[in-house]
Each structure stands twice: as structure tokens, then as C-alpha cells.
Design a protein around this nucleic acid. Sequence first.
DNA 1: GGAAAATGATAGGACATCCGACCAACCGCG
DNA 2: CGCGGTTGGTCGGATGTCCTATCATTTTCC
Lengths: 165, 165
Amino acid sequence: MAERPRLPFDPIERAGELWGERIGDPSAMRLATSIMRVQQLLLAEFDRVLRPFGITFARYEVLVLLSFSHAGELSLSKIGERLMVHPTSVTNAIDRLVDAGLVSRTADGVDRRRVLASLTAEGERVLKDATKALTDIDFGLASLDDADRERAYQLLRSVRSADFE
Amino acid sequence: MAERPRLPFDPIERAGELWGERIGDPSAMRLATSIMRVQQLLLAEFDRVLRPFGITFARYEVLVLLSFSHAGELSLSKIGERLMVHPTSVTNAIDRLVDAGLVSRTADGVDRRRVLASLTAEGERVLKDATKALTDIDFGLASLDDADRERAYQLLRSVRSADFE
DNA sequence: GGAAAATGATAGGACATCCGACCAACCGCG
DNA sequence: CGCGGTTGGTCGGATGTCCTATCATTTTCC
């Protein structure tokens, strides 16, 4: 992936320094752009690792979610709620997973508005192999030890929590 | 934005706990998915704040980059390199910024392959106002103080640096 | 009981991103 | 000096995300 453009630092982050006198909050801007860049790099790496399995990270997350559901199936709305994505994104992902034979769509007998998704045997196999591939690369976070991961997680967690109240 | 689906925790992050025996690295998966969620929330908020200005966060970053260039102009390849995005993404963003009258495209007299982009007066004005709007919301990071932002930044920085070995 | 409101899923449109392919221009080396 | 490799930018296609709108079904409440 040598052709992928990368830099050891992010010029945008230097905005904070350069704009020190002009804007009020350089540290916030620097962290915000850093989060964007890291997500960009991680997602690219995940999708590259998952490509041999014919799925993307977005679809991988759906498979993970389904494998955790006690009943073995989830309504599309529940999936969207848990992944915090728009309902149309869920429909899109499930469409592709069904086409690939990894997920099956069934109607909910109780509430006929609902559509339930569940893993197929093939879906479970792919999920297992894909998870091994991702853990083999430490989810792109090999540079952090467990303590650092916990610290980073707690810091980010407060950002998400702040979105509620 | 009450209709935007959110949860105080991310079920996917619990994957680490649930898969404690099955996968080797729950902490990495949990942090990785947390980074994805936070980026998702921040980007949505940024785009919402920037909508009145007719730009997205991707285009805002281009404007910021141009305003920092000493010469006042940058080649598209340089922009892509610094933002770590594909050349086609830069072409796309510049196209829209030119259409909006915020950026002007000029040919490089020395290397005729190059296309240079520079801010228009209108572009500078929009950049200034948009930056104020984003700093007014603390770039979505009001829940963290300066020290926490610095800690989070340093942790994420190592993830990016690790990509270079 | 039935009309109004809320919920679940999907369709169509807009954007941003990537990839592969392509063309133009530069440049290195025989 | 020129041929081949590299670099810069763009085009078409695929994916994922959001938004608005729509339809079907369920729930609320008068």
C-alpha cells in the first residue's frame, strides 16, 4: 500500500498551532481531525483485510451484532439503533449480505412491519474467519497496549456520552 | 436531533466481553468500534453545523488547508497527500468548491500537469465564519478538557505513526 | 371502534470515498 | 534525443452514509 498517501503528522492538526491567535480552541480542532484520520486509516485497513471474505467492515459489524443476539435474529430497526446508523443504511447492508448468502431475511409473525435478519451457516463461518483475520492484525491497534486502549476508550466514551443528556 | 439513533453504550463494544474466550483481543475491537462511532457522531454534527454555509466537513478541510499554504495555493495532489484521501476525492471536492465560488482552479505554469487551487475572497469569508461556528461547539469535544484532549491526541497519534514503522 | 399518531422498512437522490483505468506531461537513462 | 517509467489529474463504477418521502402496519386515544 505504498501508494496510499500518508504523513507522519497531519498538517490540519497544525492548524491549531497556526491559528493559535485566531481561533479559540486549537486543541479541539486538532483532536477532531486526528479522530477523522485514524478512523480513515483503520477503516481502509479493515476493508482491505475483509475483502477476501467478500464483506466490508460495515457488513462485518452487522454479522457481529447478529451473532450476539440471543434469539439469533434481530429486526432491522434494532440493528440500526445499535450501530447508530440510518435505517436505509441497514436495508442496504442486509440487501448485500442476503445476496451473498450470509444472512437470511424473514418476516416477523407478530409485528408484520418488522423484518428479521439472522445468520446463515455460511454467515457464521465467514464471521468466524473474518474475526480471526481482524484480531490477527490487532484491529490496527497493535501500537497500543491494553492500558492505553482502555485510556483511549474511556476518553472517547465521554465524547459519546456527552451527546445524550 | 432526537430522532438520531443513539445509545449510551455501544453493544458492539461488548463484543470484547462476550467474546472473551473466543477472540484474542477484545480491547482492540472495543476501541476500534468506539473510534468508528465517535467519528460518525462528530462528522454528522460537523456537517449539520456547516450546512448553512453550503459546505461539508470534507470541503471545510480543503479550505483550511488552502488558507495555511504560504503561497496561497496548493496542487490537488498536495491536498490529497495532506488529507490522506484519494486523488479522485480531491478532484470531487475541488469541483464542488469551484462551483460554489469558494475556490479557483488555475494551471501551474511550470508543471503543466499540475492544477493549483486557491481560496477566493468568498472562500476566505466562508472559512472564517465556518470556523467560528465549529469552535462555538468546541468541535463536538466540549466534554473533554485541554489535558484530556492532549492525552487522547497522543494516544491516537501513535496509531497513525504505527502505520509507518 | 375508528381516526390520528407513531413505528418499521424501503425507494430515490445527494455526497464522499475508494478502486481501476486512462490520458497528458515530466524525467531519467541509455 | 527519444523511449519508457513515473507522476498528476480526471472519468466511470462500486459502496456506504445521510436525507426526504412513501407505504404498510401498529399503537394511542378520543
